[in-house]
Design a binder for these strands. Structure first.
Length: 790
DNA sequence: CGGACGCCGAAAT
DNA sequence: TCGGCGTCCG
């Protein structure tokens, strides 16, 4: 991913910055990076089919880190596959399944750490997993958007339009997209990141490459020539040579001609043409405009625009679909309603409650009251059962209630926390309208214990019988943030996980307090909210309610409307002014010239609530959720009658579909195409009930790929909007247009050359061939179930 | 000699 | 999956 060697080459203009330097700014975030690292923390769980959302915790931890530093995060997710990006997804798929099988084999031998090594290689971030993160973001009122195609382009667009001030990523592609301020290598411990400011490009010139005096076009050309995601380089051409050649020959045409003339390098056929297409992806890729709520080009294409190019950079979508996609309500690959693979993960947020003075507070705060996270167990269950059916009192049952967040300040003694929590509850009880069952809730002595168990660091003992491992994670979060200098969490996610229905009902009582009304649980934990208890009952800031932020951004007024134009990076100051000439975007500006930033979407949502994975694996009821619910009846572990889910034959259908991943992906593409072609609205803009019961919604259609893959980019798959029919897939001419077939095929040289034979690892020998095949087959089924449960 | 490319270890906890 | 490092090639 990205441009190899670009970041190292720009090291001289990279500066380490502390996050606090970006206070009061909005920073775009490439969600994929965080999710991917988050997955690393729970790869084993994921691979073995346990219902976990730890990966969300990791990501949310960073979200809160940014917020702590007064940075407003704007999380951007990857969307559907871009035609231009080609990869051998099927190969990857096979490798993943193999890793899973190996992991399982090792795990069976008790070699858990070795198993984990393989597990981490078989997990992929899927849109359905991203959706769990989205749920948490919604709960905490964090801005987000799902890009129609690539997050990089979306991020660049957001920055360009002033919606964000900079971008946090790990991908050097952002620079090629024209991002001005790019942050990478974000380190949560030190709260620092490396920063590249485009204005400094001109200063690059020391070792190796020099950007002095270069236009954006030249910079981009260098990047593409050296090899990028859209186009492999001419063999033998790397960043340095690309740079040198461009310096010498000025334009790509001449460089290509020179290389061809020399005749020493094998120049792929049609390279120049491919180059132009790759260039178009960087220039005109389709992105979502959150303000106008429709797809737009990153920058407006000019005269030589044609249908081929239009499809190549990502087809258009109906605004209705685009909006739902952007908000996370449809699967970006299939365009079908999003399936919630873990409906019982219900992130909630409570406003912070003031601490009792002097207790538990750190001395390094800013003098204001310490915000202490409150924890509870809110659930989506609208009404409590009859009291007798509510199991509140058992600490054992309640402890597992997943929480995230932290109390501010240094580690405090458990008894202090204890008193804290008691005080908080008391205060809260007084300050808020007591819900019907409140007294019950607060009177329960077990609640105190629960809080202690979770919030009292010194009391935590992973080996304690009734402290599930799952909590260890939460706990570590607490500790880590405690250690993290001056962090103060203002909010706290409350998470209800499978098997916690009782607790969910128990805590339902608190909803009125925080005004959680929707299933989505929108709450805006306002920083420094801890001053008074009144806040607690004050109206919530709906993430969509507040008018667009009108933060002055004087440094943005330099934008001058106009078509995309090369910015000269040479004269630093002039470049500042000229850097981006953008199409006029009056909608983004208030009368006073301030930039208006659309807030996160907040529409009524239609999301398919699938059964939890938890229920999908009869043989694996060992999730971190149920392992602590010994005294919970089996009945209670069953999900609240969830809405009817799409008719799915788990076994047969899945197996069948998985037998041919290629076909499955083709199917997904086809479905996406068909959904648009035949009128997405008619089929899917239904009431949630109807959508849920629609018999036409089958597993195969809700499954992205066997892996629910994020980038199921298959070079030989048809693109929805051109209905390109590749030769390698059984002919299915869905649509009319095949005009781009020729041109696209001309690009197929991209991949074959790259694909390498799958290497045999010695560990493969662990399994006899036939066993392995079977294990792989089983693994694939399991993976599919995990990705998108029936 | 510089640069491209292949190998190998770390990633988060 | 990525970045650092060593080797080999031009």
């Amino acid at each position: 991913m990205g441009i190899t060697g670009l970041l190292p080459a720009l090291k001289s203009i990279s500066t380490q910055r502390h996050l606090s330097e970006f206070a009061d700014q909005t920073l775009g975030v490439d969600a994929y990076v965080w999710l991917h690292r988050g997955v690393f923390t729970c790869a084993t769980e994921l691979a073995t089919g346990k219902a976990t959302t730890k990966y969300v915790d990791y990501a949310m931890h960073r979200v809160r880190l940014l917020r702590h530093h007064k940075i407003e995060p704007y999380i951007v997710f990857d969307g559907g596959p871009l035609p231009a990006k080609k990869g051998t997804e099927v190969d990857r798929q096979a490798r993943r399944a193999e890793h899973l099988a190996l992991g399982n084999a090792l795990a069976a031998q008790g070699k858990t750490s070795q198993a984990r090594e393989h597990y981490v290689k078989c997990i992929d971030v899927t849109p359905q997993m991203a959706f769990q993160f989205i749920k948490a973001l919604r709960a905490e009122g964090v801005k987000y958007v799902v890009a129609p195609y690539e997050a990089d382009a979306q991020l660049a667009y957001l920055e360009r339009t002033g919606a964000v001030d900079g971008v946090i990523t790990e991908d050097s592609d952002l620079l090629v997209f024209g991002c001005r301020v790019t942050l990478y290598k974000l380190d949560a411990v030190s709260s620092t990141a490396m920063c590249i400011d485009r204005a400094d490009f001109a200063r690059v010139g020391a070792d190796g490459i020099s950007l002095h005096g270069w236009s954006d076009t030249q910079f981009r050309a260098m990047a593409i020539l050296s090899g990028c995601d859209y186009l492999p380089s001419i063999p033998g051409i790397g960043l340095k040579t690309a740079c040198t050649l461009l310096r010498k020959w000025k334009t790509v045409e001449q460089v290509v001609r020179a290389i061809a003339m020399e005749g020493k390098k094998s120049m792929p056929r049609d390279y120049l043409r491919s180059f132009r297409l790759a260039e178009k992806c960087f220039l005109h890729q389709r992105v979502y405009d959150p303000y106008r709520q429709k797809l737009v080009h990153l920058s407006e294409p000019d005269a030589d625009w044609d249908e081929d190019a239009d499809a190549y950079v990502g087809g258009d979508l109906e605004p209705e679909v685009a909006k739902k996609l952007a908000e996370g309500d449809v699967d970006p690959v299939t365009l079908l309603p999003m399936t919630d693979i873990c409906p019982r993960y219900v992130p909630r947020v409570l406003k912070a409650i003031p601490l009792v003075n002097g207790i538990g507070g750190s001395t390094r705060g800013k003098g204001k009251g310490k915000a202490v996270s409150l924890l509870s167990f809110f659930g989506p269950a609208p009404k409590p059962k009859s009291p007798s059916s509510v199991k509140i009192a058992s600490p054992k049952a309640a402890k597992p209630g997943m929480i995230a967040g932290k109390a501010s300040g240094k580690r405090s003694l458990a008894d202090e926390m204890d008193r804290d929590n008691a005080a908080k509850r008391k205060k809260r009880q007084e300050g808020a309208t007591p819900p019907t069952t409140q007294s019950r809730f607060f009177a329960s002595p077990s609640r105190v214990e629960i809080d202690v168990a979770i919030a009292g660091p010194s009391h935590f003992d992973e080996t304690k019988e009734n402290v599930p491992p799952a909590d260890a994670n939460e706990y570590n979060d607490l500790v880590e943030t405690d250690l993290d200098a001056d962090l103060e969490w203002d909010s706290l996610s409350l998470v209800v996980m499978p098997g916690q229905e009782d607790e969910m009902q128990m805590v339902d009582i608190a909803e009125p307090d925080v005004g959680v009304e929707q299933e989505d649980g929108y709450i805006s934990p306002t920083p420094s909210r801890s001053k008074d208890a009144e806040d607690f009952s004050s109206p919530l800031r709906h993430s969509v309610t507040p008018p667009p932020r009108q933060r002055p951004k004087s440094n943005r007024t330099a934008y001058s409307p106009g078509p995309e134009v090369d910015a000269v990076s040479s004269p630093p100051d002039a470049a500042r002014v000229q850097l981006f000439r953008l199409p006029a975007l009056p909608l983004y500006r208030s009368n006073s010239g301030e930039v208006l930033v659309p807030t996160s979407p907040d529409p009524p949502r239609t999301v398919l609530v699938g059964p939890d994975l938890f229920d999908a694996f009869d043989d694996e009821r060992t999730s971190d959720i149920d392992c602590f619910e010994e005294d919970v009846t089996v009945e209670s572990a069953t999900p609240t009658p969830s809405p009817p889910t799409p008719d799915v034959g788990l076994s047969g259908d899945a197996t069948l579909a998985l037998a041919d991943p290629e076909e499955l992906e083709a199917k997904a593409y086809e479905t996406r195409a068909a959904a648009v072609a035949t009128g997405w609205r008619e089929r899917w803009m239904l009431t949630s009930d109807k959508a849920r019961t629609t018999p036409t919604l089958r597993r195969r259609e809700t499954t992205v790929t066997p892996a629910g893959h994020h980038f199921p980019i298959n070079s030989h798959l048809p693109h929805p909007y051109t209905h390109h029919t590749p030769s390698s897939v059984p002919s299915k001419n869905v649509g009319a247009k095949t005009t781009s077939l020729q041109s696209r095929r001309s690009l197929t040289f991209l991949d074959p050359g790259r694909s390498k034979p799958v290497k045999r690892r010695t560990s493969d020998l662990l399994l006899a061939v036939e066993d392995r095949d079977e294990a792989v087959a089983n693994a694939q089924i399991r993976l599919a179930q995990f990705r998108c449960p029936p």
